[in-house]
Structures are given as structure tokens and as C-alpha cells.
Design a protein around this nucleic acid. Structure first.
Length: 636
RNA sequence: GGCGACGUAGCUCAGAUGGUCAGAGCAUGCGGCUCAUAUCCGCAGUGUCCGGGGUUCAAUUCCCUGCGUCGCUACCA
């Protein structure tokens, strides 16, 4: 029996689940369900990543412990799974005691082998902020927050010798075309690997972070993210001795979004190699969902809640939309218009209406009783070739994670059936008693086609699949799904049984409200940031300034060092306008200055403020006045 | 700035070792049917396949370059 192990990333518990999480999980779920239909033994893992500084801070904000905070958010991720009809075999948490043990043992193995070394480096550290600073971040050599002079301290950490395995990894990727799919991401990783890899810092001293897994070879350090998180994939299978590990690990494919291909495509295989563990089979990389044409982000306020969308449109419609609309690997756009269009045209009009018209005719003409093909049936009436063709195309596409194509193939069958009805005009056959046999055949062929469709859509729309099967008077197999081979044989629906009047599978989503609404203004590009109050705005101190002098900063093609007169004082401001202006251009210009911006060092030069400029594609256009205000006067 | 991806009908996007590769769905217009969730079926389109060079008998498809969008990264302020 073939096996298949699929995983989603473990989701970081710093925010609740959004559309992107839902997509990855649903894609992995669909792939898993499909493998089951092929007869494979599957294991599907998802979970949460719970250690690290951000969690400590978030917990402090809520006046609770990191563990309690992680419990709370992790539960949100667990609770969303049944709502999305995701059938995971296990849910792993990086705070699970078993996981912690495996992380330690993997680290110990690599340490013993000599691929982890201890190294110290000097850095400038502010004890108030509990963090290192780069030279350029300091203001007059002082911490920008505390105004104190940070201390130069030596910190030591453990490093993992990734560089040692770089050539091996390149070789592996080049000789395994399926290791990273789709192809564009394989190219991308190979291009990363053209540069020498730096060794990976894998620890944090406990003086700085305690919410983590203690290193097995040094009590004073905890792991920093990489080993802590990635190792979950083997923990969940019972590494090192579990039967599941032996059985499933070689078949592993990780589903990840494109932003985390480096840790998964570079760090993780090298970690496994160093630990003497066979590496996984490969990575399935998908793109991002944009919402209303913009990247999802808290500040824009377009973070989409999958629970809310599911509540409005239904879980099957949501799953269908995600799988049908996105080309796996590429970005896609999520807007209400698009999902409504998909639901109405594909689900309500094409499939739902097909189901409705066929069962209605069967009810109307035969009181619901299934006739079956007439003995003297004309072979030309068979829909089997179309159904078989759909199944073949669907199977091929699903195996390659080309979910949109797989569904399109099924819809070709749906469309063929709608054409078949028009071509054969059952309503005309019904008027001619001599042609009752043909009518029975036509309806039977259609019912069989619908049975086929119900089977093929099961991975994506399990609820609908079950509804249709039930409406056809069939029973789902014990395991709850059809094997592909069980779907294939044509003519399975028993004759003589009676079917009820059809229900509505997918109601059309009414969009009339939209038409009544006044046409919405086109969103600004880039998308508008989060709304602020006048109080927020008043925190920004804008002043009129006059540029007294300007010079280029060496080695920078973008930065100009300006001396700006603000009336009673002259400020040095470093501005990134060097591509659009020469120093001569700007001397004498009157500009708007953000006067209370925290000073920073850029390329070693102090910048005490910011001059405002319009950003026109790659060019900047300096702000100015309609007149000549006194330098230093406030702007409101 | 560096690296990478992408740029194809009004919209969303497929597509090919270079030669029926100029496509699908949606939206639009017209026609048909009446079993059906005012659903379905048929017909009709429009495209310098981002611009410019190059390789070739032949390029939308390969190479170079420019522009634009996006992602990662960097000296974003």
C-alpha cells in the first residue's frame, strides 16, 4: 500500500487564523483526501509554533503566562479545523513534552557530530532594551530609547555549520526535480544557494530568553526557532523509533507558502542531513492571497477571517473557491465579487442546477423511480467517455497539486452533461410514449454522471459530495469516501429504487444589493493605511524648513545629507532623494519637515528628522509651499 | 540597491522541446429551449500574447535590454 505524509507549517500563535492559514490547511487536506481516494495510507499533520520572544511579550500584555497565552491561541487554530472540514490526523504543539525531547535528541546528535559550535561575538547591547543594536541605529552613540550609552558586551551562542552541507544540498535539488514544486520556487532556491550560506545561530542565552527549549548540552541556553519548530514534522511521526516514522517519513511533502521556503528548503534538509536522518521527499509551495488587490495586513485592515467567510457562504463553497481560483504556486485575489461569481456560476448554475434538473425530471417523468438504460439502448447515449476523460484529467492534475485544473476537468463533465440534456431533449422524449426507453436511458446516464461528479469533488467538497450520494440513494463506503477505482465502473446505480425531489445544493448568492449601492470609489493605491484620529495626527510635529546646504553621502547613491533651517535651529537630515535630486537642486528649497521624528543614523550620519516628498513611482518630488513661510513655523 | 517571480481578450487567468498557440471562464450583445436555482444551450466578437533589440527559415514561446507589478533582502525615514 502506498503511503503519503502531508504537513502544513506549524502556525505561530501570535495572531488568530486568517485566510492564508486556511488555504494552506485546506490545500493539504484536499491533497490528503485525494491520496485516500487513490487508496493510499495517509497521515496529515498541522499544529502550532509556540515559543519565542513575541509570545512572551504578548502574554505580558495580557497579564498572563506564555503557556496560557499559547494555549489560548493554539485553541483558536484547533477549533477552526472542524469548521473548515479539515481532517488532520494529529495536531502538534511545540510545547508538547514529547516534542521537546525529540528536539533535544536531534540537537545532541548534531552537537556530538561536531556540526554545532560555540562562538562569541562582540556587540553593543542596551540592558534597558534587552537587545543588541547596530552601530547605525544609535544616536550620538546612545540608545535611541533610553538615551544611555550601550555597553559593548561579548555574547556567545551556538551556531550550526550549514555551510558544510551547501554543495550537497545544491546537488540534491539539482538531481531531484520534484524536491521543490512548482518549478519557479526550485529556481529561486537554487539562486539563493549561489551565494555562500552563513552558519545559523540556533540559540539564545537564558538571560535574554527563557521561553524556549533548553539546549541539551548547555543549561544556560534555549533553542532559537529553527530546531524548535522544524523538528515538529518528525516528532509527530514518533521519531526515532515509531512505526509511523519509518512508514511515512520518506513520503513527506510539506505544504508551505512562498515566504518560508528558505527555512524549509535550505535549513531543514541540512538539519536532517546533519542529524543523519533521511531528508523528506519534497515541498509544495503556494503563493499569497491578496485581499481587495492588496497584501493582507493588519494596518490596512483587510485580514480575512476564514470563519466569517465560511459562515456566510458555507464551508464547501469556500473550499471550492480557494481551490478553483488560485493556481497553486501563484498569487490570487480574494474579493467578495469573485467568490460570489464563482459560487453563482460554477456551483449554483452549473452543478447545482444540473443536479436539480436531472432529479426533477426523474421525479416528474418516472415518479422518482430509476429506470436504467433500456435493453435496446442506443450506445450513442452513453456519457461514460466524457466521465472517464474527466476522471483521467482530474487524477493527473490532482497528483500535481494543480487543484484548479482538476476542478476545471470535473466542470467539463458538468458542462458536457448540460449540453447532453439540450441535445437529447428529455421533455420531448417524455411526450412520446414510444420513446420512454430512451428517456430512461438518458436520465440514467445523467444520474451516473452526477454520481461520478459527486465522487470526484469529494476531496474539495466533502459535504456536497455526501449530499449528492445520499440523494442518489447510494451509501458512502464505510470509510466515508470513494476509492477512485470504485467510482470508475459505469452503471452502478441500482434500478427500481425511488429518488426524492431534489433539494437546492447551492443557493444563488443575491448580489442585487450591490447594484443599488452607489458605485464605490476606487481604492487608493497603495491601499489606504489604518484610519487615525486627530490626536494621532497631532503627535506628528510638522515644521516649515529651508534647505541651507546639501551634499551626497559617500558610497550611497540615494542619500543626501541636508542642513535644514528650522528657524531657531539648524538640523542635519539625511534624505533618500539622491536619485531624484542633485545637491544643487535642493539648496534653497522650502520643505515640510517632520521635526519630532526619532533621530537615527544612516550610513553613519545622524538624521534628525525627515523631509516630506511625494513618491511618484521611483521618483520623489519634494514637498513645498505656495508662498514662503517662516522657517520653523508649525504646519497643521 | 541586490536577488527572484510575474506582465496574454473589458475582468480573472490558462498555455506551448520555438512552426493550427492566439485560448478558457466570467462579464457584454443577439438567438434558441423550457426539465431546472430567471437556470441551460448556440452564435458573436475585440487582442502589436508589456516596449525595444538579438538568435532562427520561423518567437507570444529562447537570449539581452528597458519599463511596470509583486516577493525576499539591503543604506526606506
Amino acid at each position: 500500500m502506498t503511503c503519503q505524509y502531508y504537513t502544513t507549517p506549524i502556525y505561530y500563535v501570535n495572531a488568530k487564523p486568517h485566510l492564508g492559514h486556511a488555504y494552506t490547511s485546506i490545500a493539504a487536506d484536499v491533497a490528503t483526501r485525494f491520496k485516500k481516494m487513490e487508496g493510499a495510507d495517509t497521515f496529515f499533520l498541522t499544529g502550532t509554533d509556540e515559543h519565542g520572544d513575541k509570545i512572551v511579550q504578548a502574554a505580558e500584555k495580557e497579564n498572563t503566562t506564555p503557556k496560557a497565552y499559547a494555549d489560548k491561541i493554539s485553541k483558536l487554530f484547533q477549533d477552526v479545523l472542524p469548521l473548515l472540514n479539515i481532517e488532520n490526523n494529529h495536531f502538534i504543539r511545540t510545547t508538547d513534552p514529547g516534542h521537546i525531547e525529540v528536539v533535544k535528541s536531534v540537537l545532541a546528535t548534531i552537537y556530538d557530530k561536531g556540526d554545532i559550535y560555540f562562538s562569541s561575538y562582540e556587540g553593543i547591547y542596551c540592558f534597558g532594551c534587552e537587545r543588541f543594536y547596530q552601530e547605525r541605529e544609535l544616536v550620538d552613540g546612545k540608545c535611541p530609547d533610553h538615551g544611555t550609552v550601550p555597553e559593548t558586551i561579548k555574547e556567545s551562542n551556538y551556531f550550526f555549520k550549514m555551510s558544510k552541507y551547501q554543495d550537497w544540498l545544491i546537488e540534491h535539488i539539482e538531481t531531484h526535480p520534484d524536491f521543490i514544486r512548482p518549478e519557479q520556487y526550485r529556481k529561486e532556491l537554487l539562486s539563493f544557494l549561489k551565494e555562500p550560506l552563513e552558519d545559523l545561530c540556533i540559540s539564545r542565552p537564558k538571560t535574554r530568553l527563557t521561553w524556549g527549549i533548553t539546549l541539551p548540552f548547555d543549561e544556560d541556553y534555549v533553542t532559537y526557532v529553527w530546531f524548535d519548530a522544524l523538528v515538529n514534522y518528525i516528532t509527530a511521526l514518533g521519531y526515532p523509533d515509531g512505526d509511523r516514522f519509518k512508514k511515512f517519513w520518506p513520503t513527506t511533502r510539506h505544504f508551505v507558502a512562498k515566504d518560508i521556503i528558505k527555512p524549509h528548503g535550505i535549513y531543514w534538509p541540512i538539519m536532517l542531513k546533519a542529524a543523519g536522518i533521511d531528508i523528506y521527499n519534497g515541498l509544495n509551495v503556494h503563493g499569497f492571497w491578496n485581499v481587495q488587490g492588496s497584501k493582507m495586513s493588519k494596518s490596512i485592515g483587510n485580514v480575512t477571517d476564514p470563519v466569517e467567510v465560511t459562515g456566510r457562504f458555507g464551508v464547501d463553497a469556500f473550499r471550492y473557491f480557494l481551490m478553483r481560483e488560485m493556481v497553486f504556486g501563484l498569487d490570487a485575489n480574494f474579493t467578495e465579487d469573485v467568490i460570489v461569481a464563482r459560487i453563482n456560476s460554477d456551483l449554483a448554475n452549473d452543478l447545482g442546477n444540473l443536479f436539480s434538473r436531472v432529479l426533477s425530471m426523474n421525479y416528474k417523468y418516472f415518479k422518482g423511480s430509476i429506470q436504467g438504460p433500456a435493453a435496446d439502448s442506443d450506445k450513442d447515449l452513453s456519457l461514460e467517455p466524457e466521465a472517464t476523460a474527466a476522471l483521467e484529467a482530474y487524477t493527473k492534475a490532482m497528483a500535481e497539486c494543480r487543484f484548479h485544473k482538476a476542478l476545471a476537468s470535473v466542470w467539463e463533465l458538468v458542462s458536457a452533461m448540460n449540453k447532453y440534456i439540450v441535445a437529447n431533449e428529455p421533455w420531448a422524449l417524455a411526450k412520446d410514449p414510444a420513446r420512454t426507453g430512451d428517456l430512461g436511458t438518458v436520465l440514467y446516464e445523467l444520474l451516473e454522471g452526477i454520481r461520478f461528479v459527486a465522487g470526484l469533488i469529494w476531496p474539495v467538497m466533502p459535504e456536497t459530495s455526501g449530499k449528492i450520494i445520499a440523494a442518489l440513494g447510494l451509501e458512502l463506503p464505510e470509510k466515508g469516501f470513494f476509492n477512485l477505482d470504485a467510482i470508475r465502473p459505469w452503471g452502478q446505480i441500482p434500478r427500481g429504487i425511488s429518488l426524492a425531489k431534489p433539494q437546492i445544493l447551492f443557493p444563488r448568492v443575491d448580489v442585487e444589493k450591490k447594484a443599488v449601492e452607489p458605485p464605490a470609489a476606487k481604492p487608493l493605491k497603495p491601499a489606504l493605511k489604518e484610519e487615525i484620529t486627530i490626536d494621532d495626527f497631532s503627535k506628528i510635529d510638522l515644521r516649515a524648513g529651508k534647505i541651507l546646504s546639501a551634499e551626497r553621502i559617500e558610497k550611497s547613491d540615494k542619500l543626501l545629507k541636508l542642513q535644514v533651517n528650522l528657524g531657531t535651529q539648524t538640523r542635519q537630515i539625511v534624505a533618500g532623494i539622491g536619485k531624484s535630486y542633485t545637491p544643487e537642486d535642493v539648496v534653497g528649497k522650502e520643505v515640510i519637515v517632520v521635526a519630532n521624528l526619532k533621530p537615527v543614523k544612516l550610513m553613519g550620519e545622524l538624521s534628525e528628522g525627515m523631509v516630506l516628498a511625494a513618491s511618484v513611482k521611483k521618483n520623489l518630488v519634494l514637498s513645498g509651499f505656495n508662498g514662503s513661510p517662516k522657517p520653523g513655523c508649525p504646519i497643521k
